[in-house]
Nucleic acid binder design. Structure first.
Lengths: 215, 215
DNA sequence: CGGATTTATTCATCACGGACGAATTCTAGA
DNA sequence: TCTAGAATTCGTCCGTGATGAATAAATCCG
């Protein structure tokens, strides 16, 4: 009966609400993906009023961004891989590292969620694109050093992107069910080939043969 | 004031409603992507009552599936590519075909939208995944014929997926700005390598060096 | 200490989207 | 012609993200 007590207004105690929300949000987003998660469910789980989310983060996207800003950026991972070992084993090391990170149940889902949301939201996509260009392609290009380094680095990135796309985004068989060793065995030759680059630069020399099927 | 006339009920004339809906739906989905399109807007544009969509297709997803079942499926494209020419030029032909379709301002965007939609909705992703496995991987596997054909076909698919992911999904430089010829030059070696497969099966032989960074 | 201000919280709604069920009317088949 | 089913419309439900007003605690400042 007691309709009582102060209902509205600030509740006593320190405002750790913000981090509570962020905490729950991060976990939920990474578990279930952006669209599947509802703000109400986050608010409920964090034992917080729905409006507080808007209050602190403005919008669902804002919350998502804030939640993802925490930890796990791929650039560091690459940096580590690049740093250790020499160029001859680079492809294998990259694949193993990619698999280690993406297969890991704690680091994988965040990356996946980030990637997915970057894909369906163009503004986020732009950020990812630039980060990848700057932190990955340019870095690899610096490594390979030779003519057409940037294109070769990009080819390399393309193959890695394909691996990620098929194994984690699309979950394509038989890629998904391959062991790490198998993936290394089947994919590293392509990476190596990419680094090596196409045979002769052939700036405009078209030896003979077909003049490139004109379309 | 005449509130009049028969309002409810079946309207006279042949029921071409179903295809009308499908028509609009297809275009809209491919233009704007799954989430951005609302059933109400489709109904409006098709000059049809909202409930008719449920009536005919059950749900939004049902409509999406039905809309995509129509035409422009990549399987046919592959089939055409596979049919003509011999295996030695297969990689180049695939790349050129992929570029032709995805760069085309009329066929490209639809595919892109479809892909994006499939990525952020898992149930749709499942459909795409199965289609790709069945129509692409298995088909290529049938072509290459040899040991580990399926894995080699999958590797091939991975490289193609990478190309699509970087050039169209992520729009990564310098991939996006390459001409078709450049793409062919830089990517086809990897495709060829993928078809060839890794050198020796090497079931458990690990030459020497480090025993694969254990984690 | 005591008001004024800022910060945190709750409640009440809004507008919109998808889905459904009941009612209605037309078409087709016996 | 009578009747079963197909096609169509309306009204409504429920869940979603977002926002504004009201309220109360915390903080600042003299």
């Amino acid at each position: 009966m007691n309709k009582s007590g102060p209902r509205r207004g600030r509740r006593p105690g320190g405002p750790d609400t913000r981090v509570a929300i962020l905490d729950v949000a991060r976990r939920r987003f990474l578990e279930d993906g952006y669209h599947a998660v509802t703000l109400r469910s986050i608010a409920g789980e964090a034992e917080v009023d729905l409006a507080l989310i808007s209050y602190y983060f403005g919008s669902k996207k804002g919350l998502f961004g804030a939640a993802l800003a925490l930890g796990a950026n791929p650039a560091e991972v690459l940096a580590r891989v690049v740093a250790e070992g020499d160029l001859s084993t680079f492809p294998e090391r990259v694949i193993r590292q990619v698999l280690a990170v993406w297969d890991d149940p704690v680091t994988g889902p965040p990356l996946l969620a980030m990637l997915k949301s970057a894909i369906d939201d163009d503004s986020l996509g732009g950020l990812v694109k630039e980060a990848v260009e700057r932190e990955i392609v340019d870095r690899i290009a610096g490594l390979v050093q030779g003519r057409e380094a940037r294109q070769r680095a990009a080819s390399f990135t393309t193959v890695v992107a394909g691996l990620i796309a098929t194994r984690y985004l699309l979950r394509l068989e038989p890629i998904v069910s391959m062991t790490a060793d198998e993936v290394v065995r089947f994919v590293s030759p392509q990476l190596r080939q990419a680094l090596r680059g196409p045979g002769r630069p052939a700036p405009n020399a078209r030896p003979a043969g077909r003049p490139a099927p004109s379309r």
